[in-house]
């Protein structure tokens, strides 16, 4: 009677460390997906999988997911030590956190940048501005790729590193300081609930209709 999301066996291609306790895991793409979608992932077929946004492009050969290792987490400490050829179990992609080619602002914190990286890699970068908040400069994941595509429409807000090359402060401070946010475009938010709620409150105070704010929270 019960229909749970079926997990399929996949083989890890690589697990690369890209910052302190942050990794990109890849496996071969044998399904179609829309950028912004998530997959369920676990090391067993019948466990309690966790959700991860896909960071790779819709037509890339590999699926990439970005994750930070939570030392007391159940799954991520195990994912970070996987080797090429190891087995993982993943679901088909699902979710509707998707945007079109219209002008929009993307706002992400930490690994919440993953769906926007996927959108960029899938050709949705035109008319987009990305605001990325992170603790340290090394946490601006995929920054070279993003910079090459978005140029000055890529704003990095660094909250902890005093000698950062970017905006020094939280992304909420950057948003607070803006006087010309368009009220006619869509705003896509991805990150922790705390970030999403704070950013949404700022945008609404600045006159952005809540209907123009689409959010995805980690959970």
């Amino acid at each position: 009677m019960t229909v749970k999301r079926v997990l399929f066996k996949e083989e890890v291609l690589s697990v690369k460390s890209i910052a302190n306790e942050v990794f990109v895991l890849s496996f071969a793409r044998d399904f179609e997906f829309r950028s912004g979608q998530v997959i369920s992932l676990d090391l067993v077929a019948d466990g309690q999988p966790r959700l991860y946004s896909i960071a790779s492009g819709e037509k890339d050969n590999e699926i990439e997911i970005l994750f930070d290792e939570k030392p007391d987490g159940r799954l991520t400490p195990l994912l970070s030590v996987l080797k090429p050829g190891d087995t993982i179990f993943v679901s088909e992609p699902f979710g509707t956190f998707q945007c079109d080619k219209q002008e929009a602002m993307w706002i992400a914190a930490g690994t919440g940048v993953a769906p926007f990286v996927s959108m960029l890699r899938s050709g949705l970068g035109q008319n987009k501005t990305l605001i990325h908040g992170a603790r340290w400069d090394e946490n601006f994941y995929f920054s070279q790729k993003i910079e090459n595509m978005l140029h000055d429409k890529y704003i990095r807000c660094c909250s902890q590193q005093e000698d950062t090359a970017y905006f020094r402060g939280r992304l909420t401070e950057w948003l607070d300081s803006q006087t010309k946010l368009s009220i006619d475009i869509q705003y896509y938010l991805c990150g922790s609930a705390e970030m999403v709620v704070q950013v949404r409150d700022i945008l609404i105070k600045k006159g952005i209709p809540f209907q123009n704010i689409i959010s995805e929270t980690y959970f």
């Binding site: 009677m1 019960t2 229909v3 979710g95 959010s215 995805e216 929270t217």
Partner: peptide, 28 residues
């Protein structure tokens, strides 16, 4: 409405209410 619900509930992007209802329908 799926698109209106996601404006007030971010979960809608991952687990749409139509999917929740479909699952409930399977249960006696």
């Amino acid at each position: 409405f799926d698109n209106e619900r996601r404006e007030i509930m971010p979960i809608q992007s991952v687990y749409p209410i139509s999917g929740v209802i479909n699952e409930i329908r399977r249960w006696e």
